[in-house]
Design a protein around this nucleic acid. Structure first.
Lengths: 250, 250
DNA sequence: CGCCAGGTTGATTTCGCTCAAGCAATGTGG
DNA sequence: CCACATTGCTTGAGCGAAATCAACCTGGCG
């Protein structure tokens, strides 16, 4: 991808190539005729960074299928503290949770990178799921996986240090945005700002700055804007091992 | 509930009355004949406190329907830190998540109070869900709600102080184990040990001890063993408001 | 009786937060 | 084209909530 033909400034953008409904694990189970009906029923739109798909506390109007771009799902509390619950990439469906739970939205969705999004309204969703059990099962499987991850996340949050969680987050980004070099080092193009990195870990922006500073000091990685060069991958992985074990082998 | 006929020493035990599969939101959708088939297929067993239903990391063999008692779902990390992900009460189905996600168990289930449990094996589960879309939808709805709660929990954990979260937990227990008095105070019978309270909030046992001490000092509640007498309910509710707002009106 | 698990209490440390200042990049109006 | 806000980030000093370490209490039980 180093010399990707249409690489742009942001590797995130380069990763984010368009998908169709039929590519998503939830919708691919539909018959051709149902798919075509769905494609007629969808409402497709473009969004600019900063625009909102929906707001916390509002009733759920339908689901949003991300074709292209990047969306962040946030929760905010009265004092303006905000946490980033998840990132939605092309191929992800958003807003299905409140629809299925028959609850209002418990979080807001904000476009982080220019998006193309298909909206599918509740009534239509309901019909599809009713008529096609396979679609329901696909959502079930996705919800079950997401639930497992959410529980894992809680466990990590209370168990691991900020530094360990940050290292872990970088390794999660590796899967999508990483570019291994032949010398064993790793290039990463972060898809979000420092502030949002902080919101993902549930810490302050300043704390992220400091941990980045440390990682540079210790020569593990170099940060420049949104791009990261990880020099010692295995040492970064070491970071999210027990604080005590880490102390032992220093 | 004040003068419940067969109330025992523990309010938890008093709450925990037996349920049948047909009472659960997931299974109540089955036809009578399917229900009877399911009732034949289930394997019913009693468990004593300390026994395990399943272990983290092991493959999922089926689902466990809690008829009576109390089960705790835990995650542990290599250093012995443990968090309590959730409590399962009579009427709850456990182990459905890994089954649906087709993953191994991501947590262990330990019996906290003597239980009666129905086990339903994977193959049978698969058949039921395949044949009865309504059952799948019921699980879908439950998973969607649980996911919302898990995300809420993460947000609270990083946003609120330990003290606020403890106050919140007490109010959650109120719904199930609370007994309002005519003088406006509230009796609570905690279903778990201090250690497990700590594990639910992701803090140390000592921290729970201290916060309990504080709540007693300030005359908000009195603790004695597993029973709590909340003297100033509204003040306890106040606790889980913004630290700054709280400081303002002191 | 002595042991042990679970809980409390105290002293100390530490990690991450708060508050505050400074800086670089970007934009905006005169 | 320059003064100057604005936004996002970094850095520093000090603080505070919860962790850690360690001692001790309490009640149940063999």
């Amino acid at each position: 991808m180093n010399s990707h033909p249409n690489s742009r400034g942001s590797a995130a953008a380069c990763e984010a190539r368009a998908r169709e409904l039929r590519d998503a694990p939830e919708w691919c189970n539909l018959s051709e005729v149902d798919l075509q009906s769905l494609e007629r029923a969808q409402v497709r739109r473009s969004y600019q960074p900063g625009e909102m798909l929906f707001h916390e506390g509002t009733p759920c109007l339908g689901a949003y299928f991300v074709l292209e771009g990047l969306v962040g799902v946030r929760k905010a509390d009265p004092e303006g503290n905000t946490t980033l619950i998840k990132l939605a990439y092309p191929g992800d469906t958003l807003g299905y949770r409140p629809f299925l739970a028959e609850e209002p939205h418990r979080a807001s969705a904000e476009v982080l990178q220019a998006c193309a999004v298909s909206f599918i309204e509740c009534a239509y969703l309901r019909r599809i799921i009713h008529d096609n059990p396979a679609v329901g099962l696909a959502f079930l499987s996705r919800a079950a996986k997401a639930l497992g991850e959410a529980e894992e996340r809680f466990h990590e949050t209370v168990t691991l240090s900020m530094r360990a969680r940050f290292a872990h987050l970088l390794m999660v980004f590796r899967e999508r945005f990483g570019e291994a070099q032949s010398d064993g080092t790793l290039f990463l193009e972060l898809p979000v700002s420092r502030g949002d990195l902080a919101a993902m870990l549930g810490v302050r922006r300043e704390s992220i700055s400091r941990v980045i500073h440390e990682l540079q000091q210790s020569g593990i990685a170099r940060f420049s804007g949104q791009t990261v060069h990880v020099l010692r991958v295995e040492q970064l992985v070491e970071e999210f091992r027990p604080p005590v074990a880490r102390a032992a082998n220093r």
